[in-house]
């Protein structure tokens, strides 16, 4: 884990998700994409949502962003309930404060607009009083801060490399001066050599401006490098929540162990860190008809009788380390 910076205060909750549910009706049945999820995001931290596709991490983030509204439960941002507020109904200040960086910069930047137009739009909307020159000045400042130059200004997205495109997307999000950034797989479509540039830029921004990040990813190496806390999700539920070092040092939930043991490593040193013995098997079942009791039991190597009968509650096992598993659900 990288150092918690000064702006981060553990008692200052910026975003509170309470019993969030999001269901989708399909011809085959109701997909319970997110099913009763609660967590807090602390001001200034990076909270990672980790899990396979179909785990509900993206849906959760989309509710926070306002792409979907909650089926049930609530999301509070600074005491304002935003879970039932679609994006288009949100006031401008809220849109300014919660910004997003999408996975694939190739599709998140308008292919017909130049870098200048893309970023300028953001400035114009949130700072309408600036004139053309002031806007431009601000834009150049921002570009410089993020590590791009004037040469990039009038390029179209397709004329930029993958990493540069993602930096432009980041600059657009920063142009509004947000407090909260949702990072939806920010590096997964980039080359290795571009990934670290994005990550170090993200760290720099957080350090300078005290931003709060929600990071959605399936790349655990990325999580390890820039986040403070991790929520591991499986089939619409949170199965484990802990500070980053605890997850990597002592993963408690078998699913977390499976995720970790699946990472292809690039050195002996790394391989030694990972848990052994929980080999990946099976696939995530359909969220229309999830398994009874513990949802992970169909793939769990330690499955017991109780697992199919009772749903394990999310319990604090060690300080700030919560896990939902019958293995750790001993009544003290």
């Amino acid at each position: 884990m990288h150092e918690p910076h000064e702006a981060m205060l553990y008692d200052q909750v910026l975003l509170k998700v309470e019993h969030l549910k999001r269901y989708f009706n399909t011809p085959k049945g109701t997909v319970k994409a997110v099913d009763d999820v609660s967590f807090n995001v602390i001001k200034g931290e990076t909270l990672a949502l980790v899990g396979e596709s179909g785990s509900g991490k993206t849906t959760t983030a989309n509710v926070i962003l306002g792409r979907y509204t909650a089926t049930d439960g609530s999301v509070f941002y600074k005491d304002v309930e935003i879970g039932s507020m679609p994006l288009t109904k949100r006031p401008l200040w809220l849109r300014r404060e919660i910004q997003v960086v999408f996975q694939d910069p190739a599709t998140s930047l308008n292919p017909k607009k130049t870098v200048k137009d893309i970023i300028e739009t953001a400035i114009r909307i949130h700072y309408p009083k600036l004139n053309k020159y002031e806007r431009m000045e601000r834009l150049l400042e921002l570009l410089d801060y993020i590590g791009l130059t004037e040469d990039h200004l009038f390029k179209l997205p397709r004329e930029l490399g993958g990493g540069e495109k993602q930096l432009v997307a980041l600059a657009r999000a920063l142009a509004t001066n947000p407090t909260h950034l949702i990072l939806d797989e920010p590096t997964s479509s980039l080359d290795v050599s571009a990934q670290s540039r994005i990550l170090s830029t993200l760290l720099k921004i957080q350090k300078d401006r005290g931003l709060t990040y929600i990071l959605i990813t399936h790349d655990l190496a990325v999580v390890k490098n820039i986040s403070h806390r991790i929520n591991v999700m499986y089939l619409g539920k949170i199965v484990e929540t802990a500070p980053v070092d605890d997850i990597f040092g002592e993963p408690l939930h078998p699913y977390t162990q499976m995720l970790l043991s699946s990472i292809p490593t690039i050195s002996e040193e790394e391989s030694k860190m990972l848990p052994k013995g929980v080999e990946s098997r099976g696939e995530i079942p359909s969220a229309i008809d999830p398994p009874s009791g513990c949802r992970f039991r169909t793939r769990c190597p330690f499955v017991m009788d109780v697992c199919s009968k009772e749903e394990p509650p999310l319990k604090e096992v060690v300080t700030r380390h919560f896990v939902a598993c019958h293995l750790h659900n001993k009544n003290v």
């Binding site: 998140s108 739009t121 909307i125 949130h126 997307a169 657009r172």
Partner: peptide, 11 residues
């Protein structure tokens, strides 16, 4: 996504 990004910006 770029249309969503515009919405998120408040366009």
């Amino acid at each position: 996504p770029y249309v969503w990004a515009a919405r998120a910006l408040g366009v």
